[in-house]
C-alpha cells in the first residue's frame, strides 16, 4: 500500500539539508582542522552506533552526522584526540544510545558531549565564529522551518526574546553568533525540544533568557560556553514546559466542554 514520507530518516535528511549551509561555511573557513575534527567525531559516533546496533539491534540513524557536526563546531579547541574521544563517547552513549537511539533521547547527545567537555576540562578556549558562519545559521533555520522539521515556535520565541533584550541593551552583540548557531543546532532539535505549540515558544524564550542571564552574569565565560550551558538547561526543562502547556490545554478544554 502507499505510504507517506515522514519517517525518522526523512526527518534526519531534511535536518541535514537544513544544516548544510552552516556546515559548508564552517568547513570552508575552518579548513583542514575543521575537517579533521568532524571526521574524528563521525568516526567515534559511528563506532558507538555500530556497537549498539550489534549489541542491542538499534538501527543506525544518519542523525549521527548532525551530532558530529554540532560537536565538531562547538567543542573547545586544543583538547587533543583523547579528551575529544572521551567526551564524544560519553555524549553519544549516555545522551542518546542508552535511551534507544536518536528519537528516544531526552537531551541532545551533542549538548551532553559539549557540557562534559566544557565542565570536565575547563581552561581550553571555546571556538569563536566568523560572521559568515554565524549568518549561515539563518538559511539553516529557514530551510528547517520550510520543511517543517525545526519547530517554528522555538526559533520564533528565542528570536523574540533576544530582540527585546538586545533592544534593551541586556544582550551584547558578542553573544549573538554563538547563540544563534547553538539555537539552530542544539535547541531547535525536534526530538529534545518541547512538542506542544505554546511550550515551544516558552522553550525558545527560556533559551534566550538563559543566554541573556549568562552573558550578563557569568564572568569570564565565552559565548559558545554559555550558549551550550543554556541549551543544556533548556532541554532539561522542555518536558516540564510541555507539561505546563498541556495542563493549560486541558484546563481550556475543560472550560469549553465541561468535565469529561
Amino acid at each position: 500500500m502507499t505510504k507517506g514520507i515522514w519517517t525518522r530518516e526523512t526527518v534526519v535528511l531534511m535536518l541535514l539539508a537544513a544544516y548544510l549551509p552552516l556546515a559548508v561555511f564552517w568547513l570552508w573557513f575552518g579548513g583542514a582542522p575543521a575537517v579533521q575534527r568532524s571526521s574524528l567525531a563521525l568516526l567515534v559516533l559511528g563506532f558507538w552506533n555500530l556497537v549498539f546496533l550489534l549489541a542491542r539491534a538499534q538501527a543506525i540513524s544518519l542523525a549521527l552526522a548532525i551530532t558530529a557536526l554540532a560537536i565538531a563546531m562547538l567543542a573547545p579547541e586544543g583538547l587533543g584526540t583523547f579528551r575529544l574521544v572521551l567526551g564524544i563517547s560519553f555524549g553519544a552513549v549516555m545522551g542518546e544510545l542508552v535511551f534507544g537511539g536518536w528519537g528516544r533521547n531526552v537531551v541532545h547527545p551533542a549538548t551532553v558531549a559539549l557540557s562534559f567537555l566544557g565542565f570536565g576540562f575547563p581552561g581550553f578556549p571555546w571556538p569563536d565564529f566568523l560572521a559568515p558562519v554565524a549568518w549561515a545559521a539563518i538559511p539553516a533555520a529557514l530551510i528547517g522551518l520550510a520543511t517543517g522539521v525545526l519547530p517554528g515556535g522555538v526559533i520564533a520565541g528565542a528570536a523574540l526574546v533576544a530582540a527585546v533584550t538586545f533592544a534593551l541593551g541586556l544582550l551584547s552583540q558578542a553573544a549573538l553568533p554563538a547563540a544563534g548557531i547553538v539555537l539552530v543546532l542544539l535547541v531547535a532539535d525536534p526530538v529534545t525540544s518541547a512538542t506542544t505549540h505554546f511550550a515551544r515558544w516558552l522553550n525558545g524564550a527560556l533559551y534566550a533568557g538563559f543566554v541573556t542571564l549568562f552573558a550578563a552574569g557569568w564572568q569570564g565565560a565565552a559565548p559558545a560556553q554559555y550558549a551550550v550551558a543554556a541549551a543544556l538547561l533548556t532541554s532539561l526543562a522542555a518536558p516540564l514546559l510541555d507539561e505546563m502547556a498541556l495542563a493549560l490545554w486541558y484546563a481550556r478544554r475543560r472550560r469549553r466542554h465541561g468535565a469529561q
Partner: peptide
C-alpha cells in the same frame, strides 16, 4: 536489513506534517 531494521519500531520525530 540489519542496518535499517530493528526489533523495536522506529521512534516518531515530531514535525509539522504530524
Amino acid at each position: 536489513a540489519a542496518l535499517t531494521r530493528s526489533g523495536t519500531p522506529k521512534p516518531v520525530i515530531p514535525n509539522a506534517a504530524l
